[in-house]
């Protein structure tokens, strides 16, 4: 059974000035443990799609299902990671990690154990008592990911999580985040405008059209070298350029089917 399912989903925004139809006729099904990247022109509705899955927005048409149940509001099964880390300056790193658990009134001792374990595992153990401003951008974003993981979601929504970082950091961090997500066995939906990031991290790349946005194509990303390649290696794999060019052209509006 699919873990995330969108059935003929449409969403329009209403403002006093105008009605914006962001999404139209979206049908999507994502299996447990799958990693799907979403690319598309800016303003096409990628963030909107994530908000729908997170339950922060209700579709104006169609249904969103998680584990076969209709999404009616934010759910414990879903963790959201935004472009900016939004660590709270008035809390140290460790206490920032507990924000989600506190809000959801989860077992705090368990959350604390989990937080220190993840901090250690991902190389930030010595920074637990530091203020967020003492960390580099890449470290802050890793803390933000751990904050999401401490709340123990099954599904991770990542909205351009690396786009505020410099190129070198984002290459390194996307590799790390990929391993963390796979290791923790989470289902992931990643929005990015960086094609190489989309291809090297995901099992599937979903391309969206201009607004009102529909799914214009879905690319299964498979490499001859076999599964389990790290994003770093995938960027060097033989088929990488084929995927890259196909999706690039498609985004430019020339739809070239990949053979």
């Amino acid at each position: 059974m699919a873990q995330i399912e969108l059935k003929d989903v449409g969403l329009s925004y209403f403002t006093p000035k105008q009605e914006t139809e962001a999404l139209r006729g979206i049908n999507l099904s994502i299996r447990h443990g799958e990693f799907v990247s979403i690319v598309g022109p800016s303003g096409c509705g990628k963030s909107t799609l994530l908000s729908l899955v997170s339950g922060m927005l209700k579709p104006t048409k169609g249904n969103v299902l998680i584990d076969g149940e209709e999404v009616t509001g934010t759910s414990r099964k879903v963790g959201y990671m935004l472009q900016h880390d939004h660590l709270f300056e008035w809390r140290n790193v460790f206490n920032n990690l507990l924000v989600g658990a506190e809000i959801r009134k989860m077992d705090l001792n368990r959350a604390k154990r989990k937080a220190s374990e993840l901090l250690e595992r991902y190389g930030l153990g010595e920074f637990a008592q530091h203020g967020p401003s003492q960390l580099s951008g890449g470290m802050r974003q890793r803390v933000a990911l751990i904050r999401t993981l401490v709340a123990e979601p099954d599904i991770l929504l990542l909205d351009e999580p690396f786009s505020a970082l410099d190129y070198q950091t984002r290459l390194k961090l996307s590799d790390e985040v990929f391993h963390i997500i796979k290791e923790q066995g989470k289902t992931a939906l990643l929005v990015t405008h960086d094609l190489s990031e989309a291809i090297s991290m995901a099992d599937r790349v979903m391309v969206m059209s201009k607004r009102p946005s529909t799914i214009s194509s879905m690319h299964d990303i498979r490499f001859e070298e076999g599964g389990g390649l790290s994003p770093w290696k995938k960027r060097e794999a033989g088929l990488y350029n084929r995927y890259f060019n196909a999706i690039w052209k498609e985004l430019e509006g020339h739809v070239v089917p990949i053979i």
Binding site: S54, M56, T74, G79, Y80, L82, H84, H86, V99, I103
Partner: peptide, 18 residues
């Protein structure tokens, strides 16, 4: 206070009091 800080709170399902 940035809207997205509150969006982060919302994504965890925070109430207004929280």
């Amino acid at each position: 206070i940035s809207k997205t800080k509150l969006k982060l709170m919302e994504s965890f399902g925070a109430s207004k009091i929280q």
